[in-house]
Structure formats: C-alpha cells, structure tokens
C-alpha cells in the first residue's frame, strides 16, 4: 500500500460514507417495516420525523459518493507519478486486478445513486410521502454497492506496489495489446461510429415517435429509453477510444481514455465525460420515471420531472457530440484529410 495523501483521503472518505450509508439503511429498514401513513400514532410520527432526517443524510452521502468517482480518477492520475511505468490514470488502474474493476463499479454506482437521488427528490415534492416504502427498499437493495466499493478500494490500495512496473496507457489501449483495452483500440472506428450513431438515432427516433404516438406507445417508448441510454453510454466510450481520442491526440496509436482529462489537453476530457454522464444519467432516470403511474398526482409530477430529464439528456447528448467531434472537425479543416 502507498500512503499517498489521496489514498488516505479516499480511505477516510469511503469509510465515513459507508458509516453514514449504514446508519441510513438501518433506519430505512425501520421505516420500511413500520410505515403506515394513515396512522396517527406515536410510532408513525417518529418515522415521519426520521424520514426527513434520513433523506437529508442520504442526499449528502450519495452526492459525495458520486463525487468520489471523480476523486478516484484524480487519485489514479496523481499516483501515476509514483508508480514506475505509469504515464496517467491507466497505469495506476492497471497496476493490479482491482483498479478497473473498481472504476467500472463506481460508474455503475454513480448512475444508480443519481437515480435514487432523483426519486427521493420527487418523493420530497409530495405531501403524503407516496414513495417512502419503495425508495427505502431501493436504498436497502443498493447497499451492497458501497460495500463492494470499499472492499475493492482497499484491495486496490493494498495491492499498489511501487516496486512493480506497470503498463502505460500506450500499451493498454494499443491495437496489438491483449485484453479489453487492446480489443477496444483495435475495433474499427467506422464500426464503432456506425454503432454509436445507430444508437443515437434510435434514441432520437424513439423520442420523436413517442411524442407523436398515443399514450400506450408513449409508455413503451419512454421505458425503452432506459436500455437505450445504457447502450448510448457504452457506444460513446467505444467511439471515444477508437475515433475521438485519435483526433484529440492527433496520433493513430494513442487511444487513451484518461490522458485528455488533464491540463495538458486543457481538461478536454472533463467536458466530454461531464456531458456523457449528465446525458446518460438524466436519460436513464427519465426512462425509470415512466414506471411511476400511481397515484395520479405523483404520476403528474413524475411526468414533469421526466420532461426535464429528457431535455437535460438531449442537451447532454448534443454537448457530447459537439465536444467529441470538435477535434475531428478542427483537424479536418486544418489539414483537409483524415487520420
């Protein structure tokens, strides 16, 4: 283990958040079991008070958990300075078996936490706590995520060995490299672009048709957004590796997903990933909100929120397209040719 300030910071952060999460889950269980909105008894009043407190604490906890994804990336980038062979976050993450596993888990968790936060926000807009039982059951069900995160984080931290030479991004995301990074870098840009635009048009087409058709089809269309946005995220990463990165670095052989996040590339990756995460998170949540149909007043609020989520996801997608394809356009205008 390297006692680096970032590692220590993340260790404290993860532990504190898990503690807060655990306290909330304990209380969530009590609320889930004892909740009876129609009761005017003492226990129900106590639970109503408790749900306000728990909702506030968990809002904070999940918000910071989401930030931890970005802090983890910064940590991985910082640690590249002390790990031999590492040039950026990729070197740190690939220095043991847990780095990329943890990153992937954190990405999934981020979307799950975001969705829970939106559902909690919706419930807090209502006078009668209509989603209390469901949202706390969901909280209990997602509890394994922060546990797995902390286990993987400590495994990752304890297996960081500065005496072991790790791989740089050039070798991980290289067409000749073995593993998933090599396979992704090796994938044809035209195929990944085709897949990406297919999914993007599918999403936009689905939204257009959903707006035109009647309520029954609307529901199906809105529900379909959820898997479509997952596909969008995956194909966007694929296209970033095989196409976007090529024009950002202006090199055929450099397909790193992390180098362009830093100052050397004017934090280009921050804008790119921000738009991608916002678009995907909002889009998936928009799909999820379609499942809320009762009571009518809640469904009405859910539809309004869904509309906002759709707008955010649309602009997020547009921002991703502009940011992602900007280096390609600039390169083409400058040189009049493709890489």
């Amino acid at each position: 283990m390297i006692l680096h300030p970032w590692i220590l910071g993340l260790a404290v952060g993860h532990s504190t958040l898990l503690l807060l999460f655990s306290l909330c889950v304990l209380n969530a269980w009590q609320i889930f079991r004892g909740w009876d909105y129609n009761s005017t008894g003492e226990n129900q009043f106590l639970l109503e008070k408790k749900t306000y407190l728990i909702s506030s604490i968990i809002n904070f906890t999940l918000f910071v958990q989401i930030l931890m994804l970005f802090l983890f990336e910064i940590t991985a980038d910082e640690l590249a300075n002390v790990l031999p062979g590492a040039m950026c976050a990729v070197g740190t993450l690939s220095s043991n078996n847990y780095g990329f596993l943890l990153l992937n888990l954190k990405i999934v968790s981020t979307f799950v936490y975001f969705m829970w936060l939106v559902i909690n926000y919706l419930d807090n807009q209502m006078e009668t706590y209509p989603l209390v039982k469901k949202k706390y059951l969901a909280l209990i069900l997602i509890y394994p995520l922060p546990i797995m995160e902390i286990i993987l984080f400590f495994k990752f931290a304890f297996h960081l060995d500065p005496s072991v030479i790790t791989s740089c991004c050039g070798s991980v995301f290289n067409e000749s490299a073995k593993g998933i990074g090599g396979s992704l870098a090796n994938s044809s840009a035209s195929i990944s672009l085709s897949l990406f635009f297919c999914v993007a048009f599918l999403l936009l087409g689905n939204r257009y048709i959903t707006c035109r058709w009647g309520r029954g089809h609307k529901r199906l269309g809105a529900l379909l957004e959820f898997p479509f946005w997952i596909l969008f995220f995956i194909t966007a990463i694929l296209v970033t590796i095989s196409f976007i990165s090529t024009y950002v670095y202006e090199m055929v052989s450099h397909n790193c997903l992390f180098c362009f996040i830093g100052s050397q590339y004017h934090y280009y990756g921050v804008f790119l990933y921000f738009s991608l995460f916002i678009a995907t998170g909002a889009g998936m949540t928009g799909g999820l909100l379609e499942m809320i149909t009762k009571p009518a007043i809640l469904a009405k609020k859910a539809r309004l929120l869904q509309k906002k989520m759709h707008t955010v996801s649309f602009y997020g997608m547009m921002l991703f397209l502009v940011t992602g394809f900007w280096p390609f356009i600039v390169y083409y205008i400058k040189t009049g040719r493709l890489i």
Partner: peptide, 22 residues
C-alpha cells in the same frame, strides 16, 4: 410543532401529517 399522537386539521388539511416543508 407536531403532536406525539392524534390529528390536527386546519382548514381541511391534516397538517400534523404534512412534511415540514408543506
């Protein structure tokens, strides 16, 4: 404040059951 038990109804609304904000 909210009651420990029972119901407070003001202008037809059960205020003792409302979340703080409402």
């Amino acid at each position: 404040t909210k009651p420990t038990t029972g119901e407070v109804i003001i202008q037809g609304k059960k205020v003792s059951k409302l979340p703080e904000k409402f």
